[in-house]
Design a protein around this nucleic acid. Structure first.
Length: 500
RNA sequence: GAUUCCGUAGCUCAGCUGGUAGAGCAUUUGACUUUUAAUCAAAGGGUCGUGGGUUCGAGCCCCGCCGGAAUCACCA
C-alpha cells in the first residue's frame, strides 16, 4: 500500500467530512429531485410575480461569501450559475452545517426565487442538503466585470497540460470550453439526423482487423491471444462499408474512431473520429452537392450563422462552394502545367519551385508535395478540388473522360482538408491492378502503401453497384465550426504522454 | 524527429549582476443578516520538475533526463 500524501487543504476537507458525518450528515446521498436548472430559474423568474416561485436546484459550489448570519453561495450546474442565499433565520437548525461546506462541494437547494438588492436573481435556501463532499481543492478562477462590461478572469486555470490531463477540472472551472463540446455533440447528432432522414443506415464494422486498409497510414498493431495472430486497429472505415454496399444496402454510414500510428500535432491525434458514408447508384458529382448541403446545415445548427472565423481566416459557407480541378490549381499557383508529364519533368518542376523532395520519391509523391506546398494554403473559402491523379487514389474510379485522373474530390476550407470522396472503384480487375501498384510502392519503401485485400476484391467480383463514398474528419470539422485551431481543444481527452 | 521557450505554494505568477523564497486568490482563525474578485484583522502553507556538475554558496550558471507549449518536419 502506498501512502497517500495529502496537503493541508485536503487534510482539512477530510476532517470536515468526518465532522459532518458525526453531525449525522450523509455526505454522499443517493438522489435529489431537481425542478429547474440555473438558467431556467433566471429566465422564468418574473419581477412582478407575487406568488412565490419555488424551485429546487443542485450544483457545485463555485463561490462562497459568508457574512456572519447570512451567506451567499454561487453554484454551477450544467446550464450555468445561480446564487443561493442562506440565512440563519431561514434554517436555524442547519445553518451551522454550511460552515463546513467548501468550494467544490455539490449541494441541492429548495426555496423561493427572489431578486437581491443588487439585482441578482437568487434562490432562498429554505431547504438544502449536501449531495457530495469534494475532498480536493479546485483551482477556482474569479471573475470581475469592469465598467465596460468586460469580464476579467483572475487566476484562470490555463496550464494546457493540466487542462488536458484533468479535463474534468477544466470543464468545471473554464465554462467557456463547455460550448465547444456541446457544439461537437450537436454537429455529430445533426449529421446522424441528416443521414437518417435520407434513409441511410448507421452501421458498425470491425475496429480490430486482420488486415488494415482504406487509407495510406501506418497502423497500430496488437495481438489476439486465443487466435495467436497479430491484429490491426483500423485506419479507415472504407473497405468494410463497401462490403455492405455489396451486401445490398443502398446507403450506409459509420461515425467512429480510426487509429493511425503517426505524429501528433495541432491537427493530428493518434485516435480520431471519422465519418464515412457510401450511397449506391450515385457518383462524386452528386456527393459534392450533398456534402455542401450537409456542411452548411451543420454550421448553421451549431453557430446560427454561415460565417466562420478560423485562425486568421474569415470563411463564409453560404455562397456556392468553388470547384476547381487539381491540375488546374497546380497550374494557377505555380504557372506550370504538370498534367500528363513524365517523372523527370515533374522533378524538374519541383526543383524550380523550390519544393523539397525526398530522394527516390515517386512522381505522385512529388506532385502531392507541390500541391501541399503551393496550393493548399490558398484554399480558404470552401473549395472542392476535383479530379485527382490516379496513382494518388487507389480506391477511386477512373475519370469518365480524362485520362490518368480519377473521379475524386476533396473539400478544402481555411487551407485544410475537410472531406474526401470518390466515385468508388467497383471494377474488380482495375482494383486488383491498383493494389498491385500499391504493393510495388510498398516494396519500394512507401511504408504507407495499401495492402492487397483478397476478400475485398472478392466482394467486388460478386459485384458492387455504382457508388459514391465520402469521408469527413469529424475532429477537423468540429475545429472549423468552433474556431478551435488545435485538435486537442475539440477532444475531451487528447492523447498525452503517460505521466512520470 | 528538429528548434525555441516553459516547469517556483492548491491556482495564476514575480524572484535583479548567484547570497537557501514573494504577491494575489484559495485555506485557517476572528468580526460581519443583501454579498457578488465581498470587506476588515491575523495565521499556516515550498525537496523551486528531476539527477548530476561548477561554486564558500544555486530557483538563478553548465550537462543529462522527464513533462509541456509553440513553430517546422512527417502525415491523404
Amino acid at each position: 500500500m502506498s501512502e497517500i500524501k495529502r496537503n493541508d487543504q485536503e487534510i482539512r476537507r477530510y476532517e470536515e467530512l468526518e465532522h459532518l458525518e458525526k453531525m449525522g450528515v450523509n455526505a454522499y446521498p443517493y438522489s435529489f429531485d431537481i425542478s429547474s436548472t440555473a438558467t431556467n430559474v433566471k429566465s422564468n423568474f418574473k419581477d412582478e410575480e407575487e406568488a412565490p416561485f419555488i424551485v429546487s436546484v443542485a450544483g457545485r459550489i463555485m463561490a462562497i461569501r459568508r457574512m456572519g448570519k447570512a451567506s451567499f453561495f454561487s453554484i454551477l450546474d450544467s446550464s450555468g450559475k445561480i446564487q443561493i442565499y442562506f440565512n440563519q433565520k431561514l434554517t436555524p437548525d442547519k445553518y451551522d452545517e454550511i460552515k463546513l461546506y467548501d468550494i467544490g462541494d455539490i449541494i441541492g437547494v429548495k426555496g423561493s426565487v427572489f431578486k437581491t438588492k443588487t439585482g441578482e436573481i437568487s434562490v432562498r435556501a429554505e431547504e438544502f442538503e449536501l449531495l457530495c463532499k469534494s475532498l480536493k481543492p479546485l483551482p477556482i478562477p474569479k471573475e470581475e466585470t469592469d465598467e465596460d462590461g468586460n469580464v476579467i478572469i483572475h487566476d484562470q486555470f490555463k496550464d494546457k497540460e493540466l487542462r488536458y490531463r484533468k479535463r474534468y477540472i477544466d470543464l468545471i472551472v473554464n465554462n467557456n470550453i463547455r460550448s465547444t463540446f456541446v457544439k461537437r455533440s450537436k454537429i455529430i447528432s445533426g449529421m446522424r439526423r441528416y443521414f437518417d432522414d435520407k434513409g441511410w443506415m448507421e452501421v458498425e464494422t470491425p475496429i480490430l482487423q486482420p488486415l488494415y486498409g482504406g487509407a495510406s497510414a501506418r497502423p497500430f498493431v496488437t495481438h489476439h491471444n486465443t487466435l495467436d495472430v497479430d491484429m490491426y486497429m483500423r485506419i479507415a472505415l472504407e473497405l468494410y462499408l463497401k462490403r455492405l454496399i455489396v451486401g445490398g444496402f443502398d446507403g450506409v454510414y459509420e461515425i467512429s474512431k480510426n487509429f493511425r500510428n503517426e505524429g501528433m500535432d495541432r491537427t493530428h491525434n493518434p485516435e480520431f473520429t471519422m465519418m464515412e458514408i457510401y450511397v449506391a447508384y450515385k457518383d462524386y458529382n452528386w456527393m459534392m452537392d450533398m456534402t455542401e448541403d450537409l456542411i452548411r446545415k451543420l454550421c448553421m445548427d451549431a453557430n446560427e450563422t454561415y460565417k466562420i472565423h478560423f485562425g486568421d481566416f474569415d470563411v463564409d459557407l453560404e455562397p456556392k462552394f468553388e470547384k476547381a480541378a487539381w491540375f488546374d490549381l497546380v497550374e494557377k499557383y505555380t504557372g506550370m502545367d504538370l498534367y500528363n508529364k513524365s517523372k523527370e519533368e515533374i522533378e524538374k518542376a519541383a526543383k524550380q519551385l523550390g519544393v523539397d523532395v525526398e530522394p527516390g520519391a515517386s512522381a505522385m509523391k512529388i506532385l502531392d508535395e507541390i500541391f501541399g506546398e503551393k496550393v493548399e494554403h490558398h484554399l480558404i473559402q470552401p473549395t472542392f478540388v476535383i479530379d485527382y491523379p490516379l496513382e494518388m487514389s487507389p480506391l477511386a474510379k477512373k475519370h469518365r473522360t480524362k485520362e490518368g485522373l480519377v473521379e475524386r474530390f476533396e473539400l478544402f476550407v481555411a487551407g485544410a482538408e475537410l472531406a474526401n470522396a470518390f466515385s468508388e472503384l467497383n471494377d474488380p480487375r482495375d482494383q486488383r491492378e491498383r493494389f498491385i501498384e500499391q504493393a510495388k510502392a510498398k516494396t519500394d519503401g512507401d511504408e504507407e502503401a495499401m495492402l492487397l485485400d483478397e476478400d475485398f476484391l472478392n466482394s467486388l467480383e460478386i459485384g458492387m453497384p455504382p457508388t459514391a463514398g465520402l469521408g469527413i474528419g469529424i475532429d477537423r470539422l468540429v475545429m472549423l465550426l468552433t474556431g478551435q485551431t488545435s485538435i486537442r481543444d475539440v477532444l475531451f481527452f487528447p492523447q498525452m504522454k503517460p505521466e512520470k
